[in-house]
Design a protein around this nucleic acid. Sequence first.
DNA 1: CTCCCTGCAAATCCTTTGCATACAG
DNA 2: CTGTATGCAAAGGATTTGCAGGGAG
Lengths: 164, 164
Amino acid sequence: MPKVQASVRRDHRGRLRGAGLRHTVPRERILAFLDRKNVHPTPEELYRGLRKKGYDIGLSTVYLNLQVLKQAGLVWDFKDPLGMTRYDGYTRPHHHLVCLACGRVEDILTDKLPELASEALAERVPAPEGWRVVGARVLFTGYCPRCSSGKKGASKPREKTPAR
Amino acid sequence: MPKVQASVRRDHRGRLRGAGLRHTVPRERILAFLDRKNVHPTPEELYRGLRKKGYDIGLSTVYLNLQVLKQAGLVWDFKDPLGMTRYDGYTRPHHHLVCLACGRVEDILTDKLPELASEALAERVPAPEGWRVVGARVLFTGYCPRCSSGKKGASKPREKTPAR
DNA sequence: CTCCCTGCAAATCCTTTGCATACAG
DNA sequence: CTGTATGCAAAGGATTTGCAGGGAG
C-alpha cells in the first residue's frame, strides 16, 4: 500500500514547490502557523508566535517571506481598521469581518455564498468605461460577541482611531 | 432676492461647524482640495498639492486634520493595494476601484446600486454567532483604460508588490 | 558547487508628538 | 481673553535593505 497523502493541508513542501519556491525551514513554519482558520497575525505577532515555540527565526525573515509567499499566492494580506498588515493562509475565497472594538478578525467564507463571492461582485459592478475589473475584497466591520455585549472594554481597547 | 446657498458643496465653514469643529484656514483648504470626485491623495500628495497652490501649510497639520476630519465623518480614508493611506471627501456612500498597474483610484457610487450598498452587504452577510455587522467596504481591483490597453508601462509603474 | 536564504543591524518611510507661537470664537 | 490649532523639528513604529555566513538543490 503506497504511502500517499500524508496530510493534504500540511503538505507545505509540495505547495512551495508547486509555486516555484524553495522549501526552507522558515517558510515551512510560517505556512504551518498560518494554516488554521481565523488566524490573522501581523508580521510581529507571527514572529513572536514562532519564537514562543522555540523556533529561532528573524523578524526580517518573517517580513521577507510573507511578501514572497504573498506574491506566490500562498497567503493573503489585508489592512485591519487600525492600519496593521495582517496575513492569513490562502485557501478558499473569503472576505473578512473585523471587530471595531477589539480588532478580532473572522473569516467570511464565500464558498456557499455565490452572491458575495469576489467574482460575482466584480462582475456585477458597473465598471467605468474602459476598466477591466478582476477582483473584489470586502471588509466587513462590526462588533464581536464579547464587545457587543455592552460591557465597556470587553477586550483590549483600541488606542488609535477605529477608522474606516 | 435673498442671497442664499452660495455653493452647496463648498460650504466648508458650515460643514465644519455642523461637525462641531472650528473653522480654520488649513481645514478649509483640505476640504476644498478633497471636494472633487475621484480625488484620493495620500497625506503627502495633499500636502504637496496645497503647497503648489502657494498655501503655507505644514505636513503635520495635514496629518492631524485628516484624522480630525475623518473622526468627524467629513472625509474617508482607505488603504490602497500598496498600503498607502488615501483620503477622499465623504459625500455619498461608495466603494473604490483601484488599478493594479498604476494605482489610479475610481469611485464606485452605490446610490443607484442598492445591491452593492454597504448596508445591503452588511445585512446579507451570514454573521458568525453573536456578531453584529455594521458596515462593509468593497475594494475592487482591476486595470484602468490606459493600463489594460496592453501597452506595458502605460502609466507610472509600481515599485512594490501590487499585493492583495 | 552555486545561488538563494537567513538573521542581525542599520537604514527608510510614514505618521505621531512636543512645544512655542498665532488664531478662532 | 482663553483655549485650540499651527508648523517646525524630533521621536516613534513598521517595514526594508545591506551584508556575511549557511543551506538547498
